[in-house]
Design a protein around this nucleic acid. Structure first.
Lengths: 206, 206
DNA sequence: AATAGAATGGACTGCACGGTCCACCGGAAG
DNA sequence: CTTCCGGTGGACCGTGCAGTCCATTCTATT
């Protein structure tokens, strides 16, 4: 498992990772078995261990990385360009839509709690994801501040951290209850409090 | 498992639930085995199945209920009396302390995602917990509003939902990363935005 | 004291699932 | 055409763990 992968090999590996990700979302980390992955991806046990010598943990880690990348990608292009309130609104809509569609499937949440606990590798993936996510939000807040739409002394990092926490919690609750109201509340409240800071009065509330 | 439990029986059952809760916190739902519980609670397999005829799932459900009750209890008496900004501050401190002490042990989070997915019983426990929690927050906001410390048109339920989401997310992140900054940010930002609504200027920020 | 039913101990079973091994295939390079 | 090596198939193994069963010991009620 060094650079020694042919085109075919890389394709197979990718197929396994994607299939495994689907299986994990459907069955949950605890319930998913290697045989489920084999069935889903039409691969044999030797292939799994060929591409993931460390066995199940190894595969899980690869899936976690895959899903983590996906999370931020799904929020583009908006997350990368939060330089107008309109962009913020579009981003908000994207996040809400993405997680509502996902329903109660849990791409990363369970991976965090199940794998992430023990292994340092998984924890690193989560930390990295959260860091990049929060940094994008902070960047957006700075952009609005620099454009004069937020006061100069706005506490960028705390705002970004609080917003991120709200999203995470909203998603957790969506996963547990199937209701997206909390996610929406966190986003709407977070953004409208921000706008209020900039002097804009209350936002429409449905 | 109807009313047919002697005093001794009830004590044993409680001992098992508490011990199982500890084991689950330490090892995680996926890793914990019935034998761990047996060892921890000095009980035999027949006892486990005697008190929890449905086996592991049954036990897990009982633990979930136990932990859920604990969560709100640990926030008392403050959570029940959020009728001054001082009370809000004390409550905030309690929450932060509780989860920081708990560290990355995960009393309910993993139970949600692991058991909660499939079984309707677990989901009901979570929904009930969240509902009671949010209702307490809403009650506190109403108290402040009625005391004239918040505008009359404050959107109580959305505020409460957003705050709850922030807490949940903060705790999730604490569990995944070991950092309590997000939990603090969510609480501090949520409460200070509320106070600002009431006309109080910015709050101290460390 | 007798008896019924709860409480307990722990051996035993069955099997699901992760992981190992070896034999065979296929295509690219010489 | 041969050779080599990555890719693939799938039988096989060991074990860890949930769940079953029955024998034995308590406890309460009469």
């Amino acid at each position: 498992m060094r650079g020694e992968l042919t085109a075919k090999g890389k394709a197979t590996r990718a197929r396994i990772v994607e299939g495994a990700a689907a299986v994990l979302r459907e069955r949950g980390v605890g319930a998913a078995t290697l045989e489920d992955v084999m069935a889903r991806t039409s691969s044999s046990k030797s292939q799994l261990f060929h591409y993931f010598p460390g066995g199940k943990d190894d595969l899980l880690l690869a899936v976690a990385q895959f899903e983590a990348d996906q999370v931020l990608e799904d929020q583009q292009p908006y997350l990368g360009r939060l330089d107008s309130w309109e962009a913020w609104r579009l981003w908000r809509d994207t996040v809400v839509r993405r997680y509502e569609e996902q329903g109660d499937e849990c791409p990363l949440g369970s991976l965090f709690l199940q794998v992430g606990r023990a292994t340092p590798g998984a924890r690193a993936i989560v930390v990295e994801l959260l860091h990049r996510w929060q940094e994008s939000l902070a960047e957006g807040i700075r952009a609005q501040r620099d454009a004069g739409r937020l006061p100069a002394d706005v506490d960028v990092d705390t705002r970004a951290a609080a917003l991120l926490a709200g999203i995470q919690g909203g998603v957790s609750i969506l996963l547990s209850t199937g209701q997206s109201t909390h996610l929406r509340a966190a986003l709407d409240q977070g953004i409208s409090d921000l706008r209020r800071l900039g002097g804009e009065p209350a936002l429409s509330r449905r």
